[in-house]
Design a protein around this nucleic acid. Structure first.
Lengths: 318, 318
DNA sequence: TTCGTTGCGGTCAGCTCCTGACCGCAATAG
DNA sequence: CTATTGCGGTCAGGAGCTGACCGCAACGAA
């Protein structure tokens, strides 16, 4: 408690919160003399954390950005916000960040006190609406639990419903979570079958950490992603969509964000390209934009657009 | 360097990464005797970080979740993932979390080394698509800069384009960022006008931190949100959407997530309610679901859906 | 069961380095 | 110019850190 290390952490924490601190106040809070505070600040600087100081009336100390990421000292709210944000990103809201996000999430969650975990779970329903038509909605709790088990090298039990076949309880050593073609896969050593298996995360339910540690086995070939790709029968076929739209690039980007690439081909006309699994999404973008358009590819989109249009015009009485 | 504090941080960092560490290896890495390592572990425990130890062959140390959030020691990737996730959440991907997210984001960003900030900025285009039809797309960089200025109590200059009137350069003391009705507002003391003003963040461009500190003034009344509400002429009128859809609640929730409230009114028919600023979004939902529906309110939605349907059926050649 | 491995914690001597007090100096705002 | 605030040198005292050594307690494999 009266420890130097603890005091340094508290000092870092103080510097991370308010931003500008008079030296006297810091010294007071840390219950040391101003001289010792100056020494502590020096120590932080030696550790690589750039602490700025300004003199004169209303001078003070301030932690700046440095070369390394300093230990983040978070309060409850911030920690929850970070976890929620990461969950959203992991669920696919930010393309290309799924895996990194889920790794960071596992780290954060593991360190979080149980009460905060519960708060995050309670907010589970509040995850992003996903991307329309992006396929089955992933249970963020399931994903998180698996990520934690993978990270902690803990055996995992869960219920699995294969594409065809009945639900069964599995017992595995989770090896790695891989996002592939908009879906999450768990690559694991199946203890009952004594072999490597992959599982689609959206088919997993009721995951339980067993608490039993294991020594990670070597994945054959060494590259989990390559191995997974070779094993998955069908990566969901994707459509390459290309349409011309009579609108400004800004308007279009406002709707599709980064989910599509928008190029102006001539004054007032843009070519929008996107890769999707489901054609419902581009169809509706066209509908809601309400601008004249031409479908270049794929042909299936034309069918889909027609069907969507007819459905929209056919309001019924339920 | 050979400091105890530094060593404790390194130990915490090690315990946060791999998860299970044999004592001998930790002692080796920290270049101390095993006895000292045990003492360091004890110190961590005294500081409130629960470090588990298991004995026997393959024993080791492990950091568990405790009562407080320990200092998060992140590597570059994790830090970037967190920032990107928070940005996404702040941009409105997670309802109700905008403000908390932006506060946490400001904290994280400020501590991040410049090279990581650049990486995040480079990923700016990769923010979430927002919610379709949610209005103007917010520049995450602008929002972040303002949040940093607010947090750091630094004066801010930016270009502002009011709803009516010409662009002008402003110089303000940023007081608070408030998300209101799906838009962000900056509440600030305008230095040129010597009065409180509020600014819509999506009308702000080219924000610059001046580096000049200021002592925060008292907002009249003390409640920034209340003050802001009273000043904003028109909070964007919201529509209360209510539709009947012939589909299971699960299907509908899979698409709308938490953005709507879905109640089964009778077998196979649900009532979906949502509050939106823009009718494009509910129109999209109806279209993508592709199920029979009845619009209960508002009447404008019927127009909108009809227009979208007709537009879809009228492909042209551009 | 037995045995090896690994963590636990007491004790001790040595000494590092932390602390507070005191000082004069430098930068900054008004 | 002056008050305020941070900077850093020096010193003496002592808190507390370190490594070495010890026997003990879990744990798992043979």
């Amino acid at each position: 408690m009266a420890n130097t290390s603890a005091r340094m952490l508290r000092l870092l924490s103080l510097l991370q919160t308010h931003r500008y601190w008079p030296g006297a106040e810091l010294a007071d809070r840390l219950e040391v003399s101003p001289r010792t505070l100056r020494r502590d600040v020096d120590r932080l600087r030696e550790l690589g954390y750039p602490v700025d100081a300004s003199r004169g009336v209303a001078g003070g100390y301030q932690l700046q950005a440095g070369a390394a990421v300093p230990p983040l000292l978070l309060d409850d709210e911030e920690a929850v916000a970070i976890a929620v944000g990461l969950r959203t990103a992991a669920a696919g809201a930010v393309a290309g960040f799924e895996e990194t996000s889920v790794r960071a999430l596992a780290k954060v969650i593991q360190l979080l006190p149980p009460r905060l975990r519960r708060r995050i779970d309670a907010l589970q329903a509040v995850t992003s609406p996903g991307v329309l038509g992006s396929g089955p909605v992933l249970d963020a709790g399931v994903l998180t639990t698996i990520a934690m088990a993978t990270r902690a090298q803990e055996r995992l039990r869960f219920d699995y419903t294969p594409r065809e076949g009945a639900l069964s309880r599995r017992h595995v050593e989770p090896h790695r979570l891989v996002p592939l073609g908009r879906k999450w896969y768990l690559l694991a050593w199946d203890l009952d079958r004594a072999d490597w298996r992959n599982f689609r995360v959206d088919r997993i339910s009721g995951p339980d950490l067993t608490g039993a540690r294991f020594r990670p086995r070597e994945i054959p070939g060494g590259d989990p992603v390559a191995w997974l790709r070779s094993r998955i029968k069908a990566i969901p076929s994707r459509y390459e969509v290309s349409v011309l739209i009579q609108a400004t690039p800004e308007t279009i980007r406002g709707f599709v964000g980064h989910w599509g690439d928008c190029q102006e081909v001539r004054e007032g006309v843009c070519r929008l390209r996107m890769n999707v699994d489901d054609l419902g999404w581009p169809a509706l973008v066209l509908g809601v934009l309400g601008a004249p358009f031409t479908i270049e590819s794929p042909p299936e989109l034309r069918e889909r657009v027609r069907a969507a249009g007819e459905n929209l015009l056919r309001e019924t009485t339920l």
